[in-house]
């Protein structure tokens, strides 16, 4: 079996398992899985920039929030139909990431981290500043009635899981394809050696900008999906913490692997959820596990898999 076939099999396999889980798991865990898939969309968006292009951003919460507010505010305040508002959310995130990209790409390395961090911080404060419209930190609720698409109630367990699954699957397959396309391979080349890629005649800055926009749009889609499925929009999602989460998920799951983000989110979610049912000190456990993981699985979970048993893992 060729690598690309194996990879195709793997991706379809993951999706089949995710679809089947809905029928197997008890309701609490299907609820969690829906949430995990939504957050995994965000993580995949992040991974595209960090794992494949090699740009470490600390400002992705801004893109997540752009999608979230872009969708949430147009659907509640302008009364746009859900699909239009959803598309608007993604567009908003793409535009924001384009602007940030144009500025931030003048820098690289740690300076890139800081510039993205600061723009995101300014974005967070802007949400608070326009509290009259955004309701600041408190945020706002999207009513159940406004969360229906084509007659399907997305607030029902099946509707939510289905929507999360479909949107996750689209991003999952598209991104898996994209990283194996010439565009994706050039990005990997930039990650490995930018100078050489430039010398081969590629416009690295332009490609990186495109990567930021793709990454930002997917992250924004994660934000819009969260608002759509869980009915809440708030400034907390624009804080630094929510910029660090995807980095953590991706590093844990395995940067530069297509399944890594999902694994990372899944791992982190259940790490907190399970340990918190045994002790109040669950962050302590989470901390110890992170330390151990980085000591013994330096490539992240999927990265270790790739290194040890599945070298073809995309």
């Amino acid at each position: 079996m060729t690598a690309s076939r194996k990879s195709m099999g793997l991706h379809l396999g993951v999706l089949v398992v995710l679809a089947a889980l809905f029928f197997i798991l008890p309701p609490y865990h299907t609820g969690n899985m829906a949430r995990i898939m939504v957050l995994a969309i965000y993580a995949m968006g992040y991974n595209f920039l960090f794992g494949y292009t090699g740009l470490l951003s600390l400002g992705h919460a801004l893109f997540f929030a752009a999608g979230m507010y872009g969708f949430g505010m147009t659907v509640t305040q302008l009364g746009l139909p859900v699909p239009v508002a959803f598309a608007f959310g993604i567009l908003a995130a793409a535009v924001v990431s384009l602007v940030i990209g144009l500025l931030a790409l003048r820098t690289s390395g740690v300076a890139f981290m800081i510039v993205t961090l600061m723009f995101a911080q300014a974005g967070y404060l802007t949400i608070l500043y326009f509290g009259e419209y955004t309701r600041g930190d408190e945020g706002f609720v999207i009513k159940q009635a406004q969360r229906t698409v084509a007659g399907i109630d997305l607030t029902s367990e099946a509707g939510r899981y289905g929507a999360a699954f479909i949107l996750f699957a689209i991003c999952f397959l598209l991104l898996a394809r994209l990283v194996q396309s010439p565009f994706g391979r050039t990005l990997i080349a930039i990650r490995e050696n930018e100078e050489r890629t430039r010398m081969l005649g590629y416009d690295a800055t332009r490609l990186k900008l495109q990567a930021i926009v793709v990454s930002g749009a997917v992250s924004g889609m994660g934000g819009a999906t969260y608002a759509l499925l869980f009915g809440y929009v708030g400034a907390t999602f624009a804080t630094v913490q929510y910029s660090i989460f995807p980095l953590l998920w991706v590093l844990l799951g395995g940067a530069g692997t297509t399944v890594g983000p999902l694994i990372g989110v899944l791992f982190m979610f259940y790490l907190i959820d399970i340990s918190s049912s045994y002790t109040d000190a669950y962050m302590l456990i989470a901390g110890v596990v992170l330390v151990l993981l980085t000591m013994f699985a330096p490539q992240g979970l999927a990265g270790e898999l790739r290194k040890r048993v599945m070298p073809w893992l995309p």
């Binding site: 930190d137 408190e138 945020g139 706002f140 609720v141 999207i142 159940q144 607030t155 029902s156 869980f230 009915g231 809440y232 708030g234 400034a235 907390t236």
Partner: peptide, 14 residues
């Protein structure tokens, strides 16, 4: 904290 109430209430209703 009211942002937690806002975040949680939709799920409670559903």
């Amino acid at each position: 904290f009211s942002h937690v109430v806002f975040g949680s209430a939709p799920r409670a209703g559903e």
